[in-house]
Design a protein around this nucleic acid. Sequence first.
DNA 1: TTTTCTATATATAAGAT
DNA 2: TATCTTATATATAGAAA
Lengths: 209, 209
Amino acid sequence: MGRGKVQLKRIEDKISRQVTFSKRKGGLMKKANELAVLCDVEVALLIFSDRGRLYEFCSAESLEEILERYRIHVDEEAAVCRRAELEKNLPECTDLRTSANPLQMIQRHLDAQNIEQKNITELTELEKELDAILRQTRYRKTQLLMEAAKAVQEGEKQPRKEKTFMEEEVAEMSENLDNHYNRPLEPESNSNSNDPPLSPLQETLLHLF
Amino acid sequence: MGRGKVQLKRIEDKISRQVTFSKRKGGLMKKANELAVLCDVEVALLIFSDRGRLYEFCSAESLEEILERYRIHVDEEAAVCRRAELEKNLPECTDLRTSANPLQMIQRHLDAQNIEQKNITELTELEKELDAILRQTRYRKTQLLMEAAKAVQEGEKQPRKEKTFMEEEVAEMSENLDNHYNRPLEPESNSNSNDPPLSPLQETLLHLF
DNA sequence: TTTTCTATATATAAGAT
DNA sequence: TATCTTATATATAGAAA
């Protein structure tokens, strides 16, 4: 685009390189924004200029938000690999996410192995695994809370139905989370039976902490 | 661009939204790459699609590299603010980076204040400050090492000059780093005088650890 | 560094596969 | 979802401020 065609290689002339940088940076930011808005996706763009100045664009509230999401994504991918490795070396240590009781599983894993020098590597792997799960937990919890908050707000404005769509969704996500961790169930209810029964949404919120 | 003009708002039709996503994602990546190559700058691009799939582009070896650089940049900016705050509250605590001896400065700071509940906030500020400097230190060290490694490689292929350009640069950066931390000088040389004298590059490397 | 002015090079909307 | 085909909408190179 422009008077001349352009070779895909570093522009040697310093002046025109900087002019081009300024122009294209603007164009790229604009395009990034268009993609985010038109397609309703999350976009983050980081540019460090020659002299180390930072230019950034992000579609979300803050770049940190997207970077945290990125970290979680990477963790998840890494976890898949690690899990495959673990299972190869330790068949009895099945996937923590699907096992009946993660805590018991970890305990058993720790008991079964003499804690020797030799096992530090495996322990490190386990540590990473747990750290990744923890991050995901926090992230999903935040998501759930935001959904729930939204549901509460909207619920107040809407005529009461049996169950709002949002509540159903939140309840479903909560259920998934419970399965995910297979939290040992508390006695069904030890609350004072004089209290009024909780709404599905309230119960959901209760279970998040 | 295209048959029709486009409104900058979410495309409601799911099909065309996804088609547009696919096309524009490609276009954006291409532009990002062009900017990086033409202008010789660092670019990172993260896109999370509707269904949470991650698409990324980065001009450096790895995204982590750019993200670490971002973190350092943010730290630096935050540090500027914190320093301003600190100086307002504690005039005697001048900028750690320019002070004659950071270690003495910190020590004096700690001695001068009774360590009371009231000062925890200030200590936290100091901690953050130090953490930021530490990150920068590691980052600059890595940079220096890479430069040095490159210099060694290229030095072997080049005819011996008094001092290669790269060596000069590394030496200069090293000097800056020394000033930065104002490391108390070691006795000029306590090495065995039977050893052959070190090259400037070797000395530079020596000082990095 | 950013912007203005044009001629051109590119990107991409629509439509169809 | 990715690709091909056009007609159009945009981005931007070059020159200059």
